[in-house]
Deep mutational scan, measured.
Amino acid sequence: VLKALERTRQLDIPDEKTMPVLMKLLEEAGGNWSYIKLDNYTALVDAIYSVED
């Protein structure tokens, strides 16, 4: 979780936006981090930006 938060902080995305999206992605992935961690957490960042749209 810390590495995911560090990555999104680099992009000026607050933890308050990151955590709900991260928890949803983890739930959808059955707790499997490998998809979320791919390409420096690209799936997480993309999911956060899609929620903002």
Results as ranks from 00 to 15, higher is better:
residue 46 D to W: 10
residue 41 Y to Q: 01
residue 20 P to R: 12
residue 11 L to R: 03
residue 19 M to F: 09
residue 2 L to R: 13
residue 44 L to F: 02
residue 13 I to E: 02
residue 1 V to F: 15
residue 26 L to I: 08
residue 39 D to Q: 09
residue 6 E to I: 11
residue 46 D to L: 15
residue 24 K to Q: 09
residue 27 E to M: 11
residue 30 G to M: 09
residue 34 S to T: 15
residue 18 T to K: 02
residue 50 S to E: 12
residue 27 E to V: 10
residue 10 Q to H: 08
residue 45 V to E: 01
residue 32 N to K: 07
residue 38 L to D: 10
residue 11 L to W: 06
residue 8 T to F: 07
residue 15 D to A: 03
residue 24 K to N: 07
residue 21 V to I: 13
residue 37 K to D: 08
residue 36 I to L: 08
residue 4 A to Q: 03
residue 50 S to P: 05
residue 53 D to M: 14
residue 21 V to K: 04
residue 17 K to N: 06
residue 5 L to M: 04
residue 33 W to E: 00
residue 26 L to M: 05
residue 19 M to I: 15
residue 38 L to P: 06
residue 43 A to Y: 10
residue 42 T to F: 13
residue 51 V to T: 14
residue 15 D to M: 04
residue 12 D to K: 14
residue 6 E to N: 08
residue 29 A to I: 07
residue 36 I to Q: 01
residue 12 D to T: 07
residue 25 L to T: 01
residue 34 S to K: 12
residue 27 E to H: 12
residue 46 D to I: 13
residue 1 V to W: 15
residue 19 M to L: 14
residue 51 V to F: 12
residue 43 A to Q: 10
residue 31 G to A: 06
residue 34 S to Q: 13
residue 4 A to W: 05
residue 33 W to V: 00
residue 12 D to P: 03
residue 16 E to F: 11
residue 4 A to C: 09
residue 44 L to E: 03
residue 35 Y to I: 12
residue 49 Y to M: 14
residue 12 D to I: 05
residue 48 I to K: 01
residue 49 Y to S: 09
residue 20 P to K: 12
residue 18 T to A: 15
residue 41 Y to L: 04
residue 21 V to R: 03
residue 19 M to T: 05
residue 7 R to I: 12
residue 22 L to K: 00
residue 1 V to L: 14
residue 36 I to V: 08
residue 47 A to P: 00
residue 24 K to L: 07
residue 25 L to S: 01
residue 11 L to M: 08
residue 15 D to T: 02
residue 45 V to Y: 02
residue 17 K to Y: 08
residue 21 V to D: 00
residue 49 Y to H: 11
residue 3 K to L: 13
residue 41 Y to N: 00
residue 43 A to E: 05
residue 20 P to A: 11
residue 23 M to S: 07
residue 48 I to Y: 03
residue 13 I to T: 02
residue 15 D to E: 03
residue 12 D to V: 05
residue 33 W to D: 04
residue 25 L to D: 00
residue 51 V to K: 13
residue 28 E to F: 08
residue 25 L to W: 04
residue 49 Y to R: 14
residue 50 S to T: 11
residue 39 D to M: 08
residue 11 L to F: 08
residue 46 D to R: 14
residue 2 L to Q: 15
residue 27 E to D: 11
residue 27 E to W: 11
residue 17 K to T: 11
residue 31 G to H: 09
residue 40 N to C: 06
residue 9 R to E: 02
residue 8 T to I: 07
residue 23 M to Y: 09
residue 25 L to A: 01
residue 33 W to L: 03
residue 40 N to Y: 06
residue 32 N to I: 08
residue 15 D to N: 04
residue 51 V to Q: 14
residue 14 P to R: 06
residue 49 Y to Q: 11
residue 34 S to W: 15
residue 33 W to H: 02
residue 37 K to S: 15
residue 1 V to R: 06
residue 8 T to M: 13
residue 28 E to A: 14
residue 50 S to L: 13
residue 8 T to K: 02
residue 13 I to H: 02
residue 11 L to C: 09
residue 39 D to W: 08
residue 43 A to I: 10
residue 52 E to T: 13
residue 25 L to I: 06
residue 43 A to M: 15
residue 43 A to W: 08
residue 35 Y to S: 13
residue 37 K to P: 06
residue 38 L to G: 09
residue 8 T to D: 01
residue 35 Y to A: 13
residue 17 K to A: 09
residue 30 G to S: 09
residue 22 L to N: 00
residue 39 D to C: 08
residue 26 L to G: 00
residue 22 L to P: 00
residue 40 N to Q: 07
residue 34 S to C: 10
residue 24 K to D: 05
residue 10 Q to T: 08
residue 7 R to A: 10
residue 9 R to S: 04
residue 29 A to G: 08
residue 17 K to S: 08
residue 36 I to P: 01
residue 49 Y to F: 13
residue 23 M to H: 07
residue 14 P to W: 05
residue 27 E to I: 11
residue 16 E to W: 15
residue 11 L to A: 06
residue 49 Y to N: 11
residue 37 K to G: 11
residue 7 R to Y: 12
residue 43 A to L: 14
residue 27 E to K: 11
residue 53 D to W: 12
residue 46 D to N: 15
residue 44 L to Y: 02
residue 49 Y to K: 12
residue 31 G to Q: 08
residue 3 K to S: 11
residue 41 Y to I: 04
residue 43 A to F: 10
residue 10 Q to V: 07
residue 43 A to N: 09
residue 15 D to F: 06
residue 18 T to Y: 03
residue 24 K to S: 07
residue 37 K to L: 14
residue 17 K to W: 09
residue 1 V to Y: 12
residue 38 L to H: 13
residue 45 V to F: 05
residue 21 V to W: 05
residue 12 D to M: 14
residue 2 L to S: 14
residue 5 L to I: 04
residue 31 G to N: 10
residue 29 A to D: 06
residue 24 K to I: 05
residue 30 G to L: 09
residue 52 E to C: 11
residue 42 T to I: 12
residue 15 D to Y: 06
